[in-house]
Design a protein around this nucleic acid. Structure first.
Lengths: 344, 344
DNA sequence: AAAAATTACGCAAACGTTTGCAATTGAACT
DNA sequence: AGTTCAATTGCAAACGTTTGCGTAATTTTT
């Protein structure tokens, strides 16, 4: 900190102008080849490290991407980060990662801070609160100062924005349809937290599929949970306590699927014979659930990669908005694979 | 980007000096109260946002912490980040998170970039390669320029450094001792990747405990795996294929525990009666394993919190080095809880 | 009424780097 | 010897903000 050496310091040493040092260090042909080498060697010796901050000030480019996510405790989010990093590291960028815990206040606070730090763009997955109460002046404000904002996972009301999402509706539809095809007659849904796009989309996919097969959504077959296995326990017990039990369950994510599975097994129902189960996200442990858990992959890492590429294209002056939708993929495992198909 | 308004812009508008605007915006009493209000209102209206970059340049403080981790795909790492963020967000800091994938080259690259960006300090969990080959000139270099570096999880050869770790040795000892007390006679260990401190420490704890109870480490009871459930499958099969099977397994982490459990159940051994199993990390899904998985909590979130506090104390001028060691906690669940104790 | 004190603001340097342009030097050409 | 040209290097401004010090205007004190 105290002993950082700057270009000016080197200039003093060589009794020349800072500009000469700068050019020498950047291998500018304008500078005599020998002087260049001498200066470079000296700079190397004293451990000179370019100060990027001054450059950012000059170029109005910080080579940093702001990332705002509601949580970081699930596979999905870490995979997104891995995807971002895979593309952005080779491109010389750094990531400023901010976790909002679904709080709009924190989101606003972080957004301000990122703007103040002049990040080149922001990849954001909106907080639940922002969504619930449409508290998005801070987002609009950021957009209005033409800072590139890329929305991940969660929709934003505005039309002409950049966005990378997976088709959760479709994924849910596929999961439900798979249960139908496995012969399930009463398919329950463990519904995610209210107000979150992901929850809504998955419910709608579930609903649409039932409708396709001439069924109705029965309220007592839809229970709301958080994204944790613990929260699924109570809800699943409720489901199994009913006179007409479900014979198939579509869980809003794999953690919830784990929770549901626990309860089902404790009650001594067979999976998938009595109750078939499908989750969402295809977490690495899904295959190692008590009964290997069928799931829908939402291509989490690819979301990060696509977002990063979209960001890079913006940095290269492509300013028209893009909306990328990734296809979900159904992974069938033992928790839903029935060998004897029932008629529908 | 183009339409960002600066203090100079505002100064032009009011036909006054930038210094006046600066003071007005910072509510400096030197400036007339009315002028202050007028300027503040105007700044607000046109959406003025302080440029922190110029401040960083001036103050030689970026209000940013660099974080370098080998991976981000496990609970442990995300919990650390949560801990860091919990303390550092209220303090006004941002996190620059870099994932090295255990590569020394990437680690060096990221370290350089963070230094160039003049982060106020770096929290680092060393990469496996750095460790394996003692390729740590880059670390020493960073230390020599008196940039505060806080080591997490993995030891560093130098003595006078800052460090926050959990006592993995002790945790492994506790896990093994628990298995002994549950009556296990042949305790196997699924050993983590070579060269990683965490693997070594846990093996040593296992070894020390066996020694305490007058047993020897049997080579055929120690199998090496990666940190994934997949990699545990083959290793566990090897263990079970032996004439003298183990009746207890200490897995280097919970994911490996999941993998082992899968194999054990496929072979129709009872857990914990035939084989008792203990993991490490206490991931959120541990309780929802096929048989609720006993585990050792390494206080991951607390590592982040402690590191953050250590960092803050450094920012406040406390420059003597600190070494924090957190106590692991054994969480006993069904996978190892035997009701009928065997004699040892 | 003169001196002192107070109030309110401007000037300029500083942080570290880049870059267009001017300036200097020496060599080559007429 | 005078002119032109190329090869090097220096100057100064710029990015946005803060801050010590100077200064002008106004008020208070003697």
């Amino acid at each position: 900190m105290g002993n950082t050496v700057s270009i000016k310091d080197i200039a003093r040493k060589f009794k020349c102008a800072p500009s000469t040092i700068s050019r020498a260090l950047n291998d500018h042909p304008m500078i005599n080849i020998d002087t260049r080498k001498t200066i470079q060697e000296y700079a190397n010796k004293v451990g000179y490290q370019k100060n990027t901050i001054s450059l950012s000030l000059l170029n109005k480019r910080s080579k940093t991407l702001g990332v705002i996510i509601p949580s970081i405790s699930h596979y999905h989010e870490t995979a997104i980060i891995e995807g971002l990093e895979a593309i952005l590291q080779p491109a010389g960028y750094l990531l400023n990662i901010c976790v909002t815990n679904e709080s709009q206040v924190l989101e606003k606070e972080y957004l301000d801070r990122l703007v103040a730090n002049r990040v080149d763009a922001i990849c954001i997955s909106l907080s639940q609160e922002t969504f619930d109460h449409s508290l998005n002046e801070h987002i609009d404000l950021a957009i209005s100062r033409s800072l590139p904002i890329i929305f991940m996972d969660r929709f934003y009301h505005a039309l002409d924005v950049d966005r990378v999402i997976t088709d959760d509706f479709k994924g849910a539809f596929m999961a439900t349809e798979h249960l139908v095809q496995m012969g399930c007659q009463r398919i329950a849904h463990l519904h995610g937290p209210r107000g979150i796009t992901v929850s809504q989309q998955r419910f709608m996919g579930y609903e649409a599929c039932l409708k396709k097969y001439g069924r109705e959504v029965e309220d007592e077959l839809v229970k709301q949970v958080m994204f944790s296995p613990e929260s699924a326990v109570e809800a699943t017990k409720n489901l199994l306590d009913q006179k007409a039990k479900p014979d198939g369950i579509f869980a809003v994510n794999d953690e919830v699927g784990f929770g549901a599975m626990k309860v089902i097994q404790e009650r001594n129902y067979k999976i998938p014979e009595d109750i078939a189960l499908v989750g969402f996200d295809d977490i690495p442990l899904a295959a190692f659930a008590p009964i290997a858990l069928s799931s829908v992959s939402r291509q989490s890492k690819k979301i990060g990669e696509k977002s990063a590429k979209l960001f890079l294209s913006k940095m290269n002056g492509i300013f028209d908005h893009q909306q990328v939708t990734l296809e979900p993929e159904l992974i069938v495992r033992s928790s839903s694979q029935r060998n004897h198909f029932s008629k529908i």
